[in-house]
Design a protein around this nucleic acid. Sequence first.
DNA 1: CGCAACATTTACAACGTTATAGAATAGTGG
DNA 2: CCACTATTCTATAACGTTGTAAATGTTGCG
Lengths: 330, 330
Amino acid sequence: MNDVARAAGVSLKTVSNVLNDYEFIRPATKQKVLDAIAELGYEANLTARSLRSGKTRMLGLVLSDLSIPYYGELASRLMTVAASRGYRVLVEQSGGVAGHELSALQGPFRQLTDGLLFTPLTLDVDTIAAHQGIKPIVMLGEHIADPRFDLVTMKNAEAAEAITAHLLAGGRRRIAVLGATAGATTDSPGLRLNGYRKALEAAGAEFDPALVVQCDWRRDGGASAVGSLLDSGVRFDAVFGLNDVMALGALHELLVRGIRLPDDVAVAGFDDIDEARFASPALTTVSPGMEEIAERSIKLLIDRIEGVETASEGLHIEAGFELKVRDSAP
Amino acid sequence: MNDVARAAGVSLKTVSNVLNDYEFIRPATKQKVLDAIAELGYEANLTARSLRSGKTRMLGLVLSDLSIPYYGELASRLMTVAASRGYRVLVEQSGGVAGHELSALQGPFRQLTDGLLFTPLTLDVDTIAAHQGIKPIVMLGEHIADPRFDLVTMKNAEAAEAITAHLLAGGRRRIAVLGATAGATTDSPGLRLNGYRKALEAAGAEFDPALVVQCDWRRDGGASAVGSLLDSGVRFDAVFGLNDVMALGALHELLVRGIRLPDDVAVAGFDDIDEARFASPALTTVSPGMEEIAERSIKLLIDRIEGVETASEGLHIEAGFELKVRDSAP
DNA sequence: CGCAACATTTACAACGTTATAGAATAGTGG
DNA sequence: CCACTATTCTATAACGTTGTAAATGTTGCG
C-alpha cells in the first residue's frame, strides 16, 4: 500500500480511503490511486485488514460431516449465497461429537469467523447458551427451539404430516417409521414423528409403537432397521424414513429381500437429496426448501453481524416445503 | 497477551516464547506463564499471528461443487487429515467455470491459504503455470500431468482396465461407455477410456465408437445418455459409467425402461461413492483409494509449505485402487 | 479581501503477534 | 574470584491495515 501511495503521490491513508469508498475524495485523486493500484497489481492484505477491523468476513458452518449428502448440498448452497454477499464459509465437521461441537463454539475456529451457522447434534441448548460467546450464532436444523437463539429450520412436523397423509391417502395403514429417537419432541426426529402421529390421528388410523424403529441416521441404519423389522415379523405396508438416506437404505434392503415396491411396501423419505430422484424406484420424499433455508440463514446471520438485525429475541424462521411424489409411493 | 505477561510477571516476549515452545525457558517460568494463561482464559489471536508470521495455517481446496458426492467425501476426508496436522481447509467452489478457477488461483482466496489443493476442470496447465504464484499447489485429479506440478491422483487407466476386464470376464462383449470427452487423453475421462480400450484389446474384443457416449458427468447426464443409446437402437450388454453418479443415473434409466439388471445389461461405475453400495442392484465399481489420496496429498502439500519437501520437479503420486464387485455386474 | 464552512488529505497511533538483537543471569574452568 | 560461555529473558521494531483527529485546500459570501 505504501508503494501505491508513493506511485500515486498521495498518502497511505488516501489509498486506504479509496479502497474503502470513502465519500470525500476528489475524482482525480481517486483515479490516480486506482491507476497506481492497477499498475502495481496491488491487492489489499486481508489478514492485516482483519487484525485492524476485527472482522474476517468469514462465516463458520458447523455440521457433522460433509460426506452426508444433505450437508454437502447445504454447504454448497450456503457458500454460494454467502459469496454473493462478500463472505466466505469455513466448515468445521463435528462428527456429531459433543467435544468437537463445543470446541467449534469456543475454540480458535470461532476467532476465525464473524458468526456461526450451527447445527448442534449433541449439545443441549443450555450448554450452548453458556458458551455462545459474543458473536452472532444462527441455529440450523431443529434441535434448538429457544428464544435465546436465532433459528432457521424447515417445517418438520407439517412436512412429515403431509407425507404421512399422502401414504394414508394411498391406502397404506401400517406405516413403519425409521430413525425415531427416544424422548425429545423438539428435535427433528421428534417433530417429524409428531407430524406422522398427527396425520394418523386425522385419518383415524391406529398408532402402533412397534412400527417406530430407532436407528442411525445413515444408509446402513435404515437398511438394518427395516431388516430387523422384517425379521421380527411385524407387518407393515409402508416405510417412512425420517431422512432420505435411511429411506434409501431401507429401499435397497427391501428390494434385496424380494419385496415389490411400491406394491407390497411403499417407501417415503425426507430431504429430497439429489439422489432420491434417481433411486429405483424413484423415492417419494419431501423437499425442505433448502434454497430458502440457505438464503434466509445467511441473510439473517450477516444482518446480525453487520448490526442490521437487532431484535433482542431470537428470530425463528421456517422455510416452506414441497411434497415430491415419485414411484416409491405414488 | 499483555495481561498474561503482567500476571505472570514476565515480558510479553516470554509469553510468546512459551506459546511457541521456545527451547530456552526455565520450567518454573514456563509454569508461571501457563498458570496465568489458564487463569485469564487467554487465547492467542490468530489473525495477529498470521499477519506477523505470514502463515494462516489454512489450506485452500478448489473443486467444482461440494454437492457432488465424490467431492463431498473428498473434502470431508481432507479436512479430517488436515486437522490432524493442525491445519484447516477452506473450500472454494469453482462450478467448473474457468473464471472462478482463475480467481481461486490468484484472488484473495489465495492470500487466505498457505497452499492449494487444486482440482482444475477447465484451466489448462500453461494458464495455471502462468498464474500459480509463489505458494505451493498440489493438483488433485487427472487433468494435469506436468513436471511443473505436484500431483496426487488415482490409477485411472489401470482401474478402468480392471473393471472393463471384469465385465469382459463376465461374458460381456458390447460395453457402452458413458461420459467420454472429445480429444484429451490425459484427463480422467481420457485415461479411463484408454484403460477401457486396453482391456478390450487384451481380450480380443472389438472397439466400437458407437458405444462411446459423451455426456455431463452427472446423474441426469448418465440417465439421458443411456436413454439415447437405447433409442438409437445400438445394442449393448454392459454399461461402464466413467463415474458412479453417471452409472447410477444410467442404472435408474435402464430399470425404468424395464431392462433387467444384470441379466440384460450389466452396469459398472467408477469412484465407489457411499451410495454405490446401496443402489438396487448394488453398483459394481472401483474404489480409487480416497483415503490414501487424502492422506498423501495433505502430507505433500504441508511438506511443501513447511519446506520439508524440496524436490524441484513435481512429484506424481498414484494411489492404489480396489475393484468392488457387486450385483449390478457380478 | 477576509473568513466561515465545508471538502479533501494527512500524520500518527493502534490492532496483537513474532523476529532481532542485545541485556541479564547462571554456570564453568582456571 | 574472575573471565568467559551458555542459558534465559526483554526492549524495540516490525507485519499492513484503518480510526482519530488535526492539517490543509477550496468555495462562497458579505
